[in-house]
Design a protein around this nucleic acid. Structure first.
Lengths: 244, 244
DNA sequence: AGACTTTTAAATGTCTGACAAATAAAATTT
DNA sequence: AAATTTTATTTGTCAGACATTTAAAAGTCT
């Protein structure tokens, strides 16, 4: 293995890319041990710190894990659904927070994807998932709940809805869409009245899934989308008035 | 800024987490310059290589970019849609390739999400998007096309369909779902007959979007899903027979 | 012989110090 | 005033060293 020394800098990026390619292409399989840092340094003809920087890059993407000790080293990591969820959520959250994405656009995407889960959730929802959803609705009605806690419960409700579809790949793709909305939702003040409306819509969704009515669930989700966007619009207006 | 020295190891991970939190929380804003590596080393009370490893972790996630020279340093990076796409695709691809995900499950998720785009695509599709889709259909009919090239064109067709929905957040979420299927699709041998069927379904989708018929597009997508799963099942069977 | 303890070797984690290369600002010269 | 040179700052890279962790090997005792 060699890297291009003509490229001006960033040897560690080149080495990371070379190892990443080996993993993606299947040349390195899960749980296989990479050569030791010293060996890699020899092979790529660079110093150990440079190799280490490359390995840290891969570790940041959960592509490898390292273990100390005699039989230690860097191992190709099986990307678990959990790790993938976490990456998905941070990437999605940052994407929304760092780019001028309108609330409506993000909301449209999120609810469109959730509606896509509805038919499967209606067909396959387990008692457990329904119980989780009901529990979150109950929590949302507790007095003294902060807006942040209300939002967190809202996210938990929707995650349960997504998981009820019984497709882990779908859950993975949706995790970012649902969780990344939380910072945006946190900008909204949820009055007792608006909480009531949302809880009623949540109940409509849970009822629809319980009775296996996909259409009703999708309709309730659409109504929830409209209402959420309306709340956000009200906040914007109030802010604009406050500034003027 | 300080990190917990009681934790046994992985100082670079702790430092990376601290800086990442500062970025996510908004304490560090886009294009803001981080302290120099030497300053960070002082602040966190670690050596410069350790700081560098932390920075490489963040660079791997496109959270920062570095620049050499007098006014250089590490800067908070605006996570572009393009970067987010790329991360999404690699993560999704690895997730599918490293875990025992059935073809049907991945396919179900992908087409469910694509159907979610159909109503928006039917309403908003531009002439450009339609032209892209037609061009890919034409390419798929070219004789002498390898299976890989056919798959690549298939992905391009579906990306155009997703982009036609005119919601960049939706496109971002879908990018992984569509592209990550390509390695799985590459295991299928596309005969002239099956290519014909797929192209006909693609045409049905394009026609439906052209005439703003969301329902017809969704139906065609469902048919395409069924057919794709059937093809995959045939491959499996033929393999199983070959082994016995 | 078998179980327990100690030693040892290999690997990652971290530090120090140094030099190279890039880059923009400051100083100098034309 | 413009062009050139110098300089300072910062990242990129290297070399060598020591600390720490870990499991296997060696040794010891019952």
């Amino acid at each position: 293995m060699k890297v291009d020394p003509s490229k001006p800098t960033d040897l560690s990026a080149q080495i990371a890319a070379a190892i990443r390619d080996a993993i993606v292409s299947g040349a390195l399989i899960v749980d296989e041990r990479l050569p030791s840092e010293a060996e890699l340094a020899d092979q790529f003809d660079v110093s150990r710190p440079t190799v280490r920087e490359a390995l840290k890059r891969l570790a940041a993407q959960s592509l490898i894990r390292t273990q100390r000790g005699a039989t230690g080293g860097a191992f190709v990591n099986r990307l678990s659904f959990e790790d993938a969820y976490a990456q998905q959520i941070t990437t999605s959250t940052l994407l929304l927070s760092m780019n001028a994405v309108s609330f409506d656009t993000a909301c449209e995407a999120r609810f469109a994807l959730e509606r896509a889960c509805a038919p499967f959730a209606a067909a396959r929802r387990s008692a457990d998932h329904l119980a989780s959803m009901r529990a979150e609705i109950f929590r949302q009605g507790q007095p003294g709940l902060t807006d942040e806690a209300f939002c967190a419960s809202d996210v938990a409700f929707h995650r349960a809805l997504v998981d009820a579809a019984g497709n882990p790949v779908l859950s993975y793709h949706l995790s970012g869409a649902v969780e990344a909305m939380q910072p945006l939702m946190n900008m909204i003040t949820f009055t007792a009245r608006s909480r009531g409306v949302i809880m009623a819509l949540h109940s409509r969704i849970a009822d629809a899934l319980e009775t296996h009515q996909a259409d009703a669930a999708e309709a309730a989700l659409s109504d929830l989308e409209s209402y959420t966007c309306q709340l956000a619009r009200d906040v914007m207006e109030r802010r604009a008035q406050g500034r003027d």
